[in-house]
Amino acid sequence: MARSVTPRRKILFTLAAWSVALLIFFPVLWTILTSFKTEASAVASPPQLFTADWTLENYAEVWGRSDYPRFFWNSVVISVGSTLLGLIVAIPAAWAMAFVPGRRTKDLLMWMLSTKMMPAAAVLIPMYLIFQRTGLFDTRFGLVMALMLMNLPVIVWMLYTYFKEIPGEILEAARMDGASLRNEILYVLTPMAVPGIASTMLLNIILAWNEAFWTITLTTTKAAPLSAFIASFSAPQGLFYAKLSAASTMAIAPILILGWFSQKQLVRGLTFGAVK
């Protein structure tokens, strides 16, 4: 909506927009700032934005008290693993739905999305029992499978909306040139679909990283990711604000940084192709 604007109008809107954005961001900023304070200044009244006695003590203590690298690595394996596995299953499905649509394609997509409507708490006990019996409980593989299936409808849907934008004529041309189905997917479709696949991948890594129901209930120690790490810091114990903030920062920093860098692709992915 580019219209002629007076400088005064622009300054006014800039001020307003930045105030709102900083207000939304403030809790994250406050947590990061608090993580560098001593416990005493963390609860100082009135609250201080910056303190003179800033320290790395909290990080050292959180690092010493729990095995952060293990939680971190579990988060990486689970979120990246479930996303890659999901892509392997979803790419052929989305391809078929986009290029060989049947009468039932739309219903099928809606059905897939509706499986996500099942509240996780409703099937907690059966899932717990299944995981115990099959030896998947507290394993990274078990969580990779669970999160892959949980996010599969979203992956299929997103890929489908991207693939649909690829003109079918190109595929027909490739087919006429004698490309096999395999080659068609490998050399024609995939390069054109890479941006779509990339945003799908990003969004799903973030969804899996932030998943905090199955990752907490289906693990104890071995496979526990950062969501479980933070849950262990939630119990108030005396002066703990600065340490809680440090642990929180450590849990969200990796995905926050990834998200900031990939913000553009991510937003495009988030719209599920329905908004251009």
């Binding site: 909506m1 219209r3 900083l22 961001f25 995905i255 926050l256 998200g259």
Partner: peptide, 30 residues
């Protein structure tokens, strides 16, 4: 508001999207 001609739309979007990257237990405990 953000769609208006303002300075620094890129950083603005980064600030606004941030809560989306915070996992629910962290958001709740903050």
């Amino acid at each position: 508001l953000i769609d208006q001609p303002v300075w620094g739309q890129g950083p603005l979007r980064i600030l606004v999207i941030s809560p989306f990257f915070v996992m629910p237990p962290v958001a709740a405990s903050i």
